[in-house]
Simulated scan of single mutants.
Amino acid sequence: MAQGGHWQLITSGSRQCSTPAPNPPAVVIGNRYALLDTGEKESPPTVKEEKPHSPKAGRSAATTANRKRRVVVVGDSLLRGTEAPICCPDISSREVCCLPGSRIRNVMEALSRIIQPSDYYPMLFIHVGTNDTARCDTERIKSEYRALGVRVKEFGAQVVFFLILPVKGRGPGRDRCIMEVNAWLRRWCRQEGFGFLDHGMLFEEGLLGRDGAHLSRRGKTVFGHRLANLVRRALS
């Protein structure tokens, strides 16, 4: 009651001001992670895109407005050489983390160091799995993908997983394993609300290196610019 014994009507016109998050640390182009030498090589990518669902983590527009927007591309040695086209437009909002020889569990462990709580991540691209298929244990691979899926959902980002490309000269068992995992990965991404990037026939057009598993110089350029376009769209 106001002074004098009369009721006073109070409206809800004011807003609470949120304190801006601290500026994120500077981003350096290049691979800042140690070599994970497993002796396995991975195949390059392709391009058929399935749009991911909106992140399930509850972040209001007021919260994300005060956070630095960043897109991260993380994965195995296929990403080597893509740093310049992806990051050069704005190194403060883009990062490529190449982990040569990495497996699914290595990427899951690395994400704790890569993702900064002070930043907002509208998109996270992940290319991993080729080295895991060397064991031809599809159930274990699926289990590790599921664990990675639980981890990335904590970041509240839209996540896009890449198709695992076939490898040459490793036997029919390895080929069957990759085909089975890819079929499952596509379904799982759709069920979990993740994006799925299928590179299709792109790298059958002379963009692979002589070993049949890595990209040629031209292949890295094509793949790097294709990823750069996806990153630009995620930040726009």
Rank of each mutant, 00 (worst) to 15 (best):
Q158F: 01
Q16K: 07
S18D: 11
H225R: 12
L227Y: 05
E144T: 04
N66F: 11
R15W: 03
K168H: 08
V150R: 15
C189D: 09
D76K: 00
V27C: 11
T221N: 07
F162S: 14
G149N: 10
L235P: 05
Q3A: 13
A2G: 11
L235W: 04
I114S: 01
R187C: 10
P172W: 05
W184S: 09
P122Y: 06
S93N: 14
T46C: 11
R233Y: 04
V231P: 05
P166E: 08
V160I: 11
V160E: 01
G156E: 07
A213E: 14
V71L: 08
K153W: 01
R135P: 00
G149Y: 02
K153E: 15
E95G: 04
S118M: 05
M1C: 10
A228W: 01
A61N: 05
G219L: 02
L207C: 07
G13S: 09
I86N: 04
A213L: 12
D198M: 06
V73D: 09
D198Q: 05
L235V: 09
V160K: 01
K48S: 12
G129P: 03
G206L: 04
P89D: 02
I91R: 11
L124T: 02
G149S: 15
L78E: 10
I29N: 02
W7K: 10
I178F: 00
E83V: 02
I178P: 04
G195H: 01
S54V: 07
L124A: 03
A183L: 11
T138L: 05
S12W: 00
G30L: 04
V73N: 03
G219H: 04
R187N: 13
K220H: 04
Q8M: 14
R232W: 01
G224F: 04
P100E: 08
P44K: 06
A21E: 10
N229C: 09
K153L: 15
Y33Q: 10
L202V: 14
C87E: 15
R174Q: 15
E180Q: 15
V150H: 14
C136Y: 00
K51F: 09
A234Q: 05
R226Y: 08
R187M: 08
I29R: 09
S118G: 01
Y121G: 03
S60M: 06
S216V: 02
F203V: 08
G169F: 07
I29T: 11
W188D: 11
L35R: 03
M1H: 09
Q191M: 06
R69M: 07
Y120I: 03
I114Q: 01
T221K: 11
V47A: 12
E180F: 00
L185C: 03
C87W: 00
I86D: 06
A183W: 00
V152L: 08
A213D: 13
